[in-house]
Amino acid sequence: MYSLSECNPAVAAVCLLSAAGIAMFCMNPVILALSLAGAVCFFLVRNGAGGGKSHLFFCLLFAVLALVNPLVSHNGVTVLFVLNHRPVTLEALLYGMAAAAAVVSALYWFRSFSQLMTGDRLLYLFGRLSPRLALVLSMAFRFVPLFSRQAKKIRQAQRALGRLREGNIAETFRGNVRVFSILLTWALENGIVTADSMAARGYGVGRRTQFSVFRFRRGDAVLLALTLLFFGGACVSLACGALDMVYYPALVFPECTPLALAGYLCYGLLAFLPSLAQGWEVLRWSCLRSRI
């Protein structure tokens, strides 16, 4: 088993997307709590104490999402208090919190996903579909930063010439439009060189193959098998209705059947699998390193 940043990109993607996917289609509070805990834990494991600002943002988002629902939705039978002649209910509050947990945990999962899936990894994933698509993606990954750098350079050059006036909005806007238009010309001009370079190296000669530096190793197989096992277990439990939760008009919690417990266990393991894999690798590495 490898950590997600070391393993095959396909396995990492399956693992993260299945953990996020279940949380997005289920309003069970336990599942959502597990998802949120697992996602935050994985983010912390990867980034340490850094990223304080994004944590603050996610906390605020959670609070806003959780509080908006009881203020606009007045369903439910348990009235907590009356605000502006409108009842605020416990059911609506809990539903809001569940929805907020679903959204915030999904955001945490995708944060980690975008950190893990750098350009070359995404390329490996989508390149399987078509080598041509892979090439287009690879070029796009290169061109976007290239353009923004060139735009910055053009703006600086104009400032150095004393040509770019940053007075009123209209002039700034006009200046930016002009920079953008020359940027397009520049892109086309450079596109010709790139196209020449591609043609010179035989692009379009025949059927392309795709080369990649990623392999599928035994550790990847282990991680994939575990992911699929836990995902399957959680799905069965979910499909049988063992985890269904009713919020309106009155709260009905799912019963504690063995199937429901199995579902919680499976999802809990799935949600913490990324963190566990990371921890396992740290442990294994410190063990290996002690032998060096």
Binding site: S138, T194, F211, V213
Partner: peptide, 11 residues
């Protein structure tokens, strides 16, 4: 700059 096609050295 312009004669390179992809985003990574290996590619």
């Amino acid at each position: 700059e312009q004669q390179l096609v992809t985003d990574r050295v290996w590619h």
